[in-house]
Design a protein around this nucleic acid. Structure first.
Ligand SMILES: [Mn+2]
Ligand SMILES: [Mn+2]
Ligand SMILES: [Zn+2]
Ligand SMILES: [Zn+2]
Lengths: 145, 145
DNA sequence: ATGTTAATGCAATTATGTTGCAAATATAGG
DNA sequence: CCTATATTTGCAACATAATTGCATTAACAT
């Protein structure tokens, strides 16, 4: 059985990206979490292991290649989650709902919840849909009760 | 027939806000446009008529009172639109879909398009839904054809 | 081993948004 | 109309997110 780092290295190579420490570190961090990860948090965790600018460039490259997708929370903060299989440089398949908890502020990818089609006014051509639900996540609504 | 400025002044008074030049100017600008207005655009149009900070505070006050609502576009930029009737300090009724044109970047409030209810995983409690569609607006898809 | 290209680090800059405080002003009440 | 008071504004300083240019470093194909 191949380990995680090997998988990540293959993923980078497959996308024509060199396997560098900052990139592997970002993949490690994102994959070890059950919800999307904010840029500020990533920056803090990476600390001096990588420059801020490098982090931005790693995230941008990953997004372009379809390795991760970006979700803006209600405050406009960028959050990143690893894409499910099927995303590529040419096409993101992430039309699932995102859930932004009002209490813990985590953002969950609800991969099983698809966004329903919409009837829009004449003339408008819908390309993508982006739905963010807010409320209490499973963890937080447990604690409250 | 009462003119626009009179209506705006009543709106301010009704919400316990003094009728000041920056506030009236923001209402003028927002009401004269067919789509939501970005903070950077507002700042540019107001120019030296009002300080940046004042603009931020005007927008915040209006949002709190239910006079306008904020929509973040795909880049995370804040855009503002006047609320339809029925919004107040205590409750926003803006669960309509927003359309962000990929070409002209305008954001339209699709007041007639409601966000469909969602089935989410067990434990999650949905409070609000926020749906942004992207694609081509009516104007832009006309021009392309 | 080495050359080429991609990636990083650093410094500087821009954009967005916030806070504290003093000065100005809208307006209510006399 | 005057005046007192609470609100609002302007300014300066700060905070944070993001971008750009450029020199240096490092990955990896040959
Ligand atoms: Mn997602
Ligand atoms: Mn709207
Ligand atoms: Zn939560
Ligand atoms: Zn358009």
């Amino acid at each position: 059985m191949e380990n995680k780092t090997e998988r990540f290295e293959k993923l980078l190579v497959k996308n024509g990206l060199k396997r560098t420490a900052p990139r592997l570190q970002v993949l490690e961090i994102l994959s070890g979490r059950d919800s999307a990860t904010s840029q500020p948090y990533l920056e803090q965790v990476m600390g001096k292991d990588a420059d801020r600018v490098t982090l931005y460039r790693v995230l941008q490259a990953f997004e372009e290649k379809g390795i991760i997708h970006k979700v803006l929370d209600q405050q406009g903060t960028a959050n990143y989650a690893i894409c499910s299989d099927g995303c590529s440089a040419h096409e993101h398949h992430d039309e699932h709902v995102h859930f932004n908890c009002d209490n813990c502020h985590k953002i969950y990818c609800l991969d099983s919840v698809k966004i329903p089609a919409l009837k829009v006014p004449v003339g408008f051509k819908v390309e993508h849909l982006n739905l963010i639900a807010t409320g209490l996540c499973a963890n937080c609504s447990d604690k409250v009760n």
